[in-house]
Amino acid sequence: MKSMNVIIVSDTHMPRMAKQLPEVLRKELLGADLIIHLGDWQTKDVYEELKSYAPVTGVYGNVDEPFFIEHFNEKLVLELESHLIGVTHGHGKGKTTEQRAISQFKNENVELILFGHSHIPLHKEYEGRVLFNPGSPTDKRKQSHYSFGKLNVKANQPLQIDHVFFMEK
């Protein structure tokens, strides 16, 4: 049974926070079947670079240029190997980023909610769903490490998702 290797990134904020994607991320992208970006790409160059590795999908964030608003949605439900995955950036007013992400999919039967915006890595279960924020590979703010996510998808198997933490950007 083939598995699908998905790399999850968010909040790249390029070129403001980095001139290029970190080497550890670029190495992981070489084996990607799909890349999901959770918004705040900042410029189209990030999209162009990512799609040179693998197909790219995702959502726009609150600091993205018009290209992203024209070509991506604020929210997305992906079906990968019969798994439903909710994708959003998580920005907005009121509530926490996590609460906004959850509320965007309250009427959807997703098993995994991917969101960004806060730059704070998160991996937890909430009411039978997995919530996952990959953090940022280029702008760790007050976090100890830069980070992104790796998702392994197989039909009829539980989703496997983990953070990749690293120090050098």
Results as ranks from 00 to 15, higher is better:
residue 46 V to K: 01
residue 56 V to D: 02
residue 94 G to L: 09
residue 81 E to M: 13
residue 117 H to F: 07
residue 47 Y to F: 14
residue 46 V to H: 07
residue 106 K to Q: 14
residue 34 L to Q: 05
residue 58 G to T: 04
residue 89 H to G: 06
residue 120 I to T: 15
residue 121 P to T: 11
residue 138 T to L: 00
residue 116 G to D: 05
residue 72 F to I: 08
residue 33 D to E: 06
residue 46 V to M: 04
residue 55 P to Q: 02
residue 46 V to W: 02
residue 111 E to P: 00
residue 57 T to H: 05
residue 56 V to K: 04
residue 99 Q to K: 14
residue 96 T to L: 08
residue 130 V to G: 01
residue 117 H to L: 02
residue 67 F to V: 05
residue 120 I to G: 08
residue 136 S to Y: 04
residue 34 L to M: 06
residue 78 L to W: 01
residue 48 E to P: 03
residue 120 I to Q: 11
residue 133 N to R: 07
residue 86 G to P: 00
residue 73 N to P: 07
residue 132 F to Q: 11
residue 113 I to S: 03
residue 88 T to C: 14
residue 81 E to A: 15
residue 140 K to P: 15
residue 97 T to H: 07
residue 32 A to S: 10
residue 80 L to R: 07
residue 94 G to F: 09
residue 35 I to A: 05
residue 131 L to R: 07
residue 139 D to V: 14
residue 137 P to G: 06
residue 140 K to T: 10
residue 69 I to G: 01
residue 92 G to T: 12
residue 142 K to D: 15
residue 59 V to F: 00
residue 131 L to P: 00
residue 46 V to C: 04
residue 59 V to H: 00
residue 47 Y to V: 10
residue 90 G to M: 06
residue 99 Q to M: 09
residue 94 G to M: 07
residue 128 G to C: 06
residue 62 N to K: 09
residue 123 H to L: 12
residue 72 F to N: 02
residue 58 G to E: 04
residue 71 H to S: 07
residue 35 I to L: 05
residue 50 L to K: 03
residue 134 P to Y: 12
residue 131 L to G: 03
residue 31 G to H: 11
residue 64 D to E: 08
residue 137 P to W: 02
residue 133 N to G: 04
residue 128 G to H: 03
residue 68 F to D: 00
residue 47 Y to P: 04
residue 88 T to Q: 07
residue 102 I to F: 12
residue 77 V to Y: 04
residue 93 K to E: 15
residue 127 E to S: 14
residue 94 G to H: 12
residue 55 P to S: 02
residue 112 L to Y: 02
residue 139 D to S: 10
residue 137 P to Y: 06
residue 120 I to S: 08
residue 117 H to Y: 13
residue 123 H to G: 07
residue 132 F to H: 07
residue 73 N to I: 09
residue 40 D to N: 11
residue 142 K to Q: 14
residue 122 L to Q: 08
residue 42 Q to T: 13
residue 84 L to D: 04
residue 36 I to E: 03
residue 32 A to E: 04
residue 123 H to A: 09
residue 49 E to G: 06
residue 96 T to V: 11
residue 90 G to K: 05
residue 74 E to Y: 13
residue 103 S to G: 10
residue 112 L to F: 00
residue 44 K to S: 07
residue 68 F to I: 09
